[in-house]
Simulated scan of single mutants.
Amino acid sequence: MKGIIERRSIRKYTEEKISDEKIKEILKAGMYAPSGGNAQPWDFVVIKDKKLLTEITKVHSYSHSLKEADCGIIVCGNLKKEKFKDLWIQDCSAATQNILLAAHSLGLGSVWLGLYPEMDRVDGVRDIINAPENIIPFSIISLGYPAEKKSIPDRYDESNIHYEQW
Rank of each mutant, 00 (worst) to 15 (best):
D120A: 12
E15K: 15
D70R: 07
N130C: 09
D43K: 15
I140C: 05
Y62E: 10
A103Y: 01
E133S: 14
D120M: 06
S63M: 03
Y145N: 06
K50I: 04
I152A: 08
V111N: 12
V75T: 13
Y156F: 14
A39G: 10
K67Y: 05
E148W: 01
L66M: 09
P146K: 12
S65P: 00
A131D: 03
R126I: 00
G114T: 05
W112N: 04
S139E: 03
Y156V: 13
K17C: 00
L66R: 06
H104K: 14
F44P: 04
Y145K: 11
I26Q: 04
F138G: 04
K80E: 14
K50V: 10
I89W: 01
E158D: 01
E25D: 15
F138E: 07
R126Y: 04
K67A: 11
I10L: 05
D86N: 15
M1D: 05
L113N: 02
S159M: 00
I26V: 15
L87W: 13
Y13K: 06
H60M: 10
L106I: 03
G124A: 07
W112Q: 06
R8I: 02
E118R: 14
V125P: 08
D127W: 03
G72T: 05
A103D: 09
L79T: 08
A39S: 15
I152C: 06
C92T: 07
Q165Y: 15
K2E: 14
S142C: 10
N160I: 06
G107P: 01
M31S: 06
Y163E: 10
E21N: 14
L115P: 01
L113H: 03
S9I: 04
F84K: 13
G37E: 05
V46S: 08
S142Q: 10
L79E: 12
K81W: 06
E164F: 15
E133V: 07
D70Q: 07
I73A: 02
I161E: 08
G3A: 08
S151E: 15
K83E: 10
L115G: 05
S142R: 13
R121C: 01
K67P: 00
A39Y: 12
Y163K: 14
I23Q: 04
E21C: 00
Y13C: 03
K51C: 01
V111L: 06
K80N: 14
R121L: 00
L53V: 03
A69K: 14
I141N: 05
E158L: 10
I74C: 09
Y13V: 03
K83Y: 15
C76W: 06
N98D: 11
E68G: 09
F138P: 02
I23P: 02
M1A: 12
Y145D: 03
K80V: 02
L52Y: 03
L143E: 04
P117F: 13
D123C: 03
M31F: 12
K58H: 11
L52N: 02
I74W: 06
A147E: 13
I26Y: 10
Q90M: 13
V75S: 02
L87Q: 10
